[in-house]
Design a protein around this nucleic acid. Structure first.
Lengths: 135, 135
DNA sequence: TATTGTTATACTCTATAACTATA
DNA sequence: TATAGTTATAGAGTATAACAATA
């Protein structure tokens, strides 16, 4: 395996490790990874159903169910749109905001041991390299 | 957000990007991410059901279904254990090996544009940092 | 008694197709 | 006609509980 393939392989392995941590953090609050993503998106947006579906890369019908289940738990709510009587906005309830904030802390704590394997200078270097990857 | 939190955030975002690429590559062959993981594991091992479940972090009953569906497609097979009449080994069929090899190439091709954003020296540096993370 | 694997059951996630209401 | 959202339906993925066969 050449150097580039090795880097790709480690990127994949790292991603699985990170996703496992995220899944576990979500599961501790009876949330799926998708529901976790919904909370994360709604922290900063109040999208219409179709916009939320686009963000998630899912069909609108799938998002209807996701929002249903999350609303039943009191984490999100639907609100009518001002300008389009067909459209529905989704937003976090106060309980949803609290859970999202809790999860942010818990996920940071759960991931910290990973980056803690690097000295501060290398952590920073990793951050810079990943930023370029995400461009 | 401090430097460490920013690195963590980029690690999470990168992981989602990588997982999206993997999901898409798998979906192109009508495979879920979990089925992709099964093929990857079986490329180098012929585990018992319980071992496969442990690798995947899933219950044995879930793996029974996964192996059922994959076997029905002719990608994997069950074989009796020599030493334990209760145990069942899972392995790739020739078709499973061919698909796994194809996927390896397709995933490398799909991920390459990501690391290609870095010059070779930085790619290598990233690989080294990720290797430390995975230790 | 403990372990291996399967089956029955239930719920979540997801997509497709058909529908309603509005634009 | 086209778009926003929901509902009905179907299949995959997952876990729990109960079971049969073997250790």
């Amino acid at each position: 395996m050449d150097a580039e393939a090795e880097t790709l392989d480690r990127l994949v392995q790292t991603s699985f490790t990170v996703m496992a941590v995220l899944s576990q953090a979500a599961a501790a609050h009876d949330l799926s990874l998708t529901q976790l993503r919904v909370l994360a998106i709604l922290r900063d947006h109040q999208p219409k159903m179709a916009e939320l579906a686009a963000h998630l890369g899912l069909d609108r019908s799938s998002v209807s169910g996701l929002v249903d289940r999350s609303a039943k738990r009191g984490l999100v709510r639907r609100t009518a749109s001002k300008d389009d009587a067909r459209a529905v906005h989704v937003s976090l309830t106060p309980a949803g905001h609290r859970l999202a904030a809790t999860l942010t802390v818990e996920i940071a704590d759960a991931l910290a041991p990973l980056t803690a394997k690097l000295p501060p200078a290398e952590q920073k270097r990793l951050g810079i390299l990943l930023a370029k990857l995400l461009d």
